[in-house]
């Protein structure tokens, strides 16, 4: 592999590993984005794109809803939509891609992806978009994917037992380490950094805990003799790491919560397991300065 083309994607800020180093292996890195992201700093070519509201474009949400966003404002001079940049580069490379608009791209998607067959811009511009499957026969889309009345097999619900405590929950490792997202940290935080109020909320966390933090329930903290702002060491079976305690009733007793942006800590504790979804039994001790 010689070249990498990243469309509105910022893996350098979101990855647990040294992606910046891996990007160095490529002869060409192209980044299309709204902002100068951490990844864009390693790119050979940066193509600044238009934002939501500056172009007519569709989105599909996790709810399967395909929505059309209309252009409401003129983009700043020099910015073009991401799809148009791809078409122009393809043209320069000799391909004959003839799309006059994003609607034409959508039409082609409808031809090759059967369940988008009815999702023309014209159709999407009514109501709050359509949920796929949205076909020529079913242009209003499908509200429930596995309902009995659309002839498909309905979902079968099975009760899930209460999650067992982390496997080796023992005297040595009585707490469970949970990794997850944080209220003011969303995906790669590119957008939050550009929103005044949210950015403030996020920066306050960093002002209060400049080296990051893990969250402990007040009862657990009391038992450990740990107060808010104290340095703590977290021991897992094979590794340990230091962080600052944020003592808050927002986390349950018995758990230690590691917010998403604590990359170093995650890396140290999770080691090779590193998918961030594992529950790890740990022990916490106050780290004497």
């Amino acid at each position: 592999m010689k070249a990498l083309w990243l469309c509105r994607y910022d893996p350098v800020s979101s990855s647990l590993f040294d992606l910046a180093g891996s990007l160095g292996q490529f002869e060409l890195v192209v980044v299309q984005h709204l902002f100068m992201t951490d990844t864009a700093k390693y790119a050979h070519v940066i193509l600044p794109t238009t934002a939501f509201g500056e172009e007519r474009v569709s989105f599909t949400s996790t709810e399967r809803r395909i929505q059309l966003a209309e252009q409401m404002v003129e983009p700043s001079p020099g910015l073009t939509p991401a799809w148009e940049q791809i078409v122009r580069v393809a043209g320069l490379m000799g391909a004959d891609w003839d799309y006059p608009s994003a609607a034409a791209v959508m039409e082609e998607i409808g031809e090759v992806v059967p369940f988008y067959g009815g999702a023309s811009y014209e159709n999407l511009s009514r109501e709050y978009g359509r949920q796929w499957p949205c076909t020529k026969d079913q242009p209003l889309g499908t509200r429930f994917l596995f309902s009995e009345d659309n002839g498909r097999k309905p979902f079968k619900f099975i009760p899930v037992p209460k999650p067992a405590p982390a496997p080796a929950s023992s005297k040595d490792f009585p707490l469970t380490l949970v990794c997850g997202s944080s209220l003011y940290y969303w995906n790669q935080n590119v957008l939050i950094r550009h929103s005044e109020a949210l950015r403030r909320e996020y920066s306050i966390l960093l002002i209060d805990y400049p080296e990051g933090f893990v969250e402990l329930n007040p009862e657990d903290a009391k038992g450990l003799g740990v107060r808010d702002g104290h340095k703590v060491r977290i021991y897992a079976e094979a590794a340990s790491a230091v962080s600052t305690a944020r003592v808050t009733a927002e986390v349950r007793k018995g758990t230690v919560f590691v917010p998403y942006f604590e990359h170093d800590l995650e890396r140290q504790i999770l080691g090779e397991r590193r998918d961030g979804s594992a529950l790890v039994p740990v022990r916490v001790e106050r780290e004497k300065a």
């Binding site: 005044e196 109020a197 403030r200 909320e201 306050i204 002002i207 209060d208």
Partner: peptide
């Protein structure tokens, strides 16, 4: 210098400079 709508639900709204 801008002024931006703010909300009392957000913790930064009442947090003081000293923390």
């Amino acid at each position: 210098r801008v002024r931006v709508w703010d909300a009392c639900a957000l913790s930064g709204f009442t947090r003081m400079a000293g923390g």
